[in-house]
Design a protein around this nucleic acid. Structure first.
Lengths: 339, 339
DNA sequence: ATGAAAGCGCTAACAC
DNA sequence: GTGTTAGCGCTTTCAT
């Protein structure tokens, strides 16, 4: 095991002080008016011996870890894993690293995780807040640590957030479903007060009201066993003779498709929130309300980095439009008849 | 912003020394024979003021960060995001946190990332090594940092690894395809020398040889644009009039399905490596060689944690069996005729 | 049984 | 321009 070279080793080897080396290493050579010759000599030597600063010591001293804490609902959900991928790349480009965790709707675990991230002195937080996290997030703010909420926000806590325009997305999807000669259009969602779920519900309602049609709303328990979800979705669709259904999350739609397939029941017209590889390739392919992950994450990182740098005077509350991607599942024409 | 309470604040408030507090906090009260009364007094006070040690300072001092570096090929691939989910949970249970990155087949980025993780003093590495990482991984070993390779390994570098029995998996899948009256059975894989790809190829070959049939092997460029992959897969299947095909990764199979669907070409019998939500719900559902993610990750973390604790005398090279999950896509009977 | 103090590796205020 | 040194918050040796 080769010994790590320290800044003091460099100073000693070159017969100069650690300060000079430190200044040069931190791009303060010009500012401190260190001679170009010295600067070059140090830089060359540093490269030669492959010196790498100990980030821990640096962080302890500066109070900056260059690490961001990312808390997502479930990393195994393709929506969130894609988000993670983009965030990681954008953070990397901005010189940050990510520590992440899935919360899996476990409020207690979420709290612990956030505390641990704070103990680790993360420079900032990116959180998809589950319910009951008001206090914890308020606590982060009190400790003056930058936070950006994502995918949903907490109305009672004033923070930055970046979310999609869920209401408009749900409205347009529902309207699209209604325009295709469907009367009995239902919504399958969750017992949840999270803003994105509320907004999707509102969007659905607005469209139903506009068409003056009765609404059919089925809510499922968050984190319930999938079999329960499947049973209830099936019952809802069959009993109500649904013409069309909007699913408020991709995994609810997946459960629905599983249930329908298992019982060989023909699909109602349908649409779902959030893209999924399955939806493009399913037969029929599934219409979705797609969130613009690239733009969402870009705004997210920008907002967070600006806050960390102290460059943000005010809270940024950003809403990004969704895109309705119409596929076979929502249109009346049979798949075979499409051009 | 409330000021963080330090260990010295506690000592001062209680009129004792930091040493005593530190001993008590690190469960060395008994060992150092500190009185129970004192211990209780300190613990109570600590709880009351909500003292949380600064992990950075602790790490700087002890050299232990309790952070593991996880480098996966692509976090957006459901196989890897599931792996990440399990690893994170297991690591958490063992008192570790994860910093992760996707390498996206970018060797240069991978090297940088590994270096940055080393600068961050991670306690250990979990890596799905892409090609050309021999030196970097050897370098980690030289620095005496525990590493476990995963999903594939590097034959020329002696490390722990945990992989699936890819050869047997491919062999069984191919044999299954052959037993269903298919003669022209092809393999769609990648130009890659990674062990998992080589093993899958070998398994396919072994089955073909056993049946004394000509093999059809199509390799695609790693990281090529999806359109190219789609075109080439289509051409391979059509030109060779394939009866059946084994895809060596889930995303190759997804590309294949897309291509076939777009051109309305009937599916050959098929099977793919690695589970995917799509495969269960596709019509027909897709037969897969499924890796046992739970067991893989469990062995992984056990091995890594044991090494970090200095409890591992020798290198562990673990191979976990795959499971062939037979679905509609690989059997001759038409979906409609299944019970 | 408890405390003083060194030191982990780095940055930066201050000195010259 | 460059060097000396305190100090980030903690653990742990050594002294008492």
């Amino acid at each position: 095991m080769k010994k790590r070279v320290l800044i003091s080793d460099i100073a000693k080897a070159l017969g100069i002080s650690v300060t000079t080396v430190s200044f040069i290493l931190n791009d303060k050579a010009k500012e401190k008016r260190i001679s170009d010759a010295m600067t070059k000599r140090v830089l060359d030597y540093v490269k030669k011996v492959g010196y790498k600063p100990n980030q821990l010591a640096k962080s302890l001293r500066t109070g900056q870890t260059k690490i961001l804490g990312l808390l997502v609902e479930d990393i195994a959900n393709p929506f969130f894993s894609n988000v993670a991928k983009y965030i990681e790349r954008q953070a990397y480009d901005a010189g940050y690293h990510i520590i992440y965790c899935s919360m899996n709707n476990d409020g207690q675990k979420a709290k612990e995780l956030i505390q641990m991230f704070m103990d680790r002195q993360v420079d900032g937080f990116i959180i998809t807040p589950s319910e009951g996290l008001e206090d914890t997030i308020a606590n982060i703010r009190q400790n003056n640590i930058p936070v950006v909420l994502f995918d949903r926000y907490i109305p009672t806590v004033d923070t930055h957030y970046v979310v999609s325009d869920n209401k408009k997305g749900a409205y347009e999807a529902t309207k699209h479903l209604l325009e295709n000669e469907n009367k009995r259009v239902g919504l399958i969602s969750l017992y949840s007060n999270q803003t994105q779920m509320r907004d999707r519900l509102e969007g659905y309602m607005q469209a139903m009201d506009e068409f003056q049609l009765q609404s059919y709303i089925k809510k499922l328990q968050l984190g319930a066993p999938e079999q329960d979800a499947k049973d209830q979705i099936l019952e809802f669709i069959v009993d109500n003779k649904m013409d069309a259904v909007l699913f408020s999350t991709n995994y609810l739609a997946v459960s629905g498709l599983k249930a329908l397939k298992e019982h060989r029941i023909p699909l109602p017209r349908m649409a779902a929130f959030d893209e999924h590889t399955l939806f493009k390739l399913h037969d029929p392919s599934i219409t979705v309300v797609s969130q613009n992950i690239e733009q969402l994450t870009k705004e997210l990182i920008q907002t967070l980095v600006a806050d960390i740098a102290g460059r943000s005077k005010e809270l940024r509350k950003i809403t990004i439009p969704c895109e309705l991607i119409i596929r076979e599942s929502s249109i009346v024409t049979l798949p075979e008849q499409i051009s």
